[in-house]
């Protein structure tokens, strides 16, 4: 029997999600707009503050916007495509995880594929609009290396957020109470990471590098992007951030083992 690839299975999942969505068009558009409006509010905040102050720690308005748009894009991609992890309390709570375990596919693949939250693309839209303004307005000469830099920031950023979602799911294997504090590392980073983390001081830089390597997909490559440094280390810092996914994967395995030994 030839094994059908995970990619094909994922495509089929996606098509099911799309068709489910079509059943609730009005509510989909409403939620999409809601997401967009939330992201637009975040943009307005930056606009008002930078309009008043001009710069913050040497970053111009356009440079902050590049940071804002890249972190928003990374977050919305992670949230759209890895929403299954985000709603893991429900997956555990309603026994759906048992169902996943009796199917011959990787567990985390199934959890991720089980839900695609396309309403979250509302934030992506705000990010795209912001890029459309900030990229030309920043005065950066977008040579291939700078384009690569921006792509790495977004893609690796999204993967780091997925890693945090995995940690969130790991905690769900043990308790479903008080999970809101994880918002600090997801929504909190999305909102406050709209500004390069170095404006918040050394301590925050340390936490956001060594607890979760957010700075490696944010400040460091941003410095390369806006020409504060030529170091290739900064350019490829986002790849280094992917090391974070290893402990996440180990924790996930630990969680699954715990689940299988308690059955709940």
């Amino acid at each position: 029997m030839k094994k059908i690839s995970n990619l094909t299975v994922y495509r089929k999942f996606l098509s099911i999600h799309l068709r489910s969505l079509m059943q609730y068009k009005a509510s989909f558009i409403m939620t999409l707009l809601g997401q967009f409006s939330g992201a637009f509010s975040a943009f307005l905040t930056i606009y008002f503050l930078l309009r008043r102050f001009g710069t913050v720690e040497g970053y111009t308005y356009q440079e902050v916007l590049l940071c804002f748009a890249s972190i928003y894009m990374a977050f919305s991609l992670a949230e759209t495509f890895a929403r299954g992890l985000d709603r893991f309390p429900a997956v555990i709570g309603n026994g759906e995880f048992d169902r996943i375990l009796v199917r011959p596919r990787n567990e985390i693949f199934q959890v991720i594929a089980s839900k695609t939250e396309l309403t979250r693309l509302g934030r992506l839209l705000q990010a795209i609009v912001t890029f459309c303004y900030a990229i030309p307005a920043s005065g950066i000469d977008f040579t291939p290396d700078k384009i690569l830099c921006l792509v790495l920031m977004v893609v690796c950023g999204a993967l780091v957020f997925v890693g945090v979602f995995v940690i969130f799911a790991f905690i769900c294997f043990f308790t479903l109470e008080g999970l809101e504090f994880m918002n600090i590392l997801t929504d909190g980073v999305r909102e406050h990471g709209s500004y390069p983390f170095d404006i918040y001081g050394k301590e925050i830089m340390t936490v956001m590098t060594f607890v979760v390597p957010y700075t490696l997909v944010q400040v460091y490559p941003l410095h390369y992007l806006i020409g504060r440094t030529d170091s290739l280390l900064n350019l490829f810092a986002p790849l280094l951030a992917l090391v974070f996914l290893i402990p996440c994967a180990l924790l996930w395995k630990l969680g699954v083992r715990h689940y299988k030994s308690t059955g709940s």
Partner: peptide, 23 residues
């Protein structure tokens, strides 16, 4: 508990299962 996807026709659920089980 259901093994089927709630909002799509049953046939679509079956097709997804075909892919998941590599039938």
């Amino acid at each position: 508990r259901s093994a089927l996807w709630w909002d799509v026709p049953v046939a679509d659920s079956f097709e997804l299962l075909q892919a998941i089980y590599s039938v």
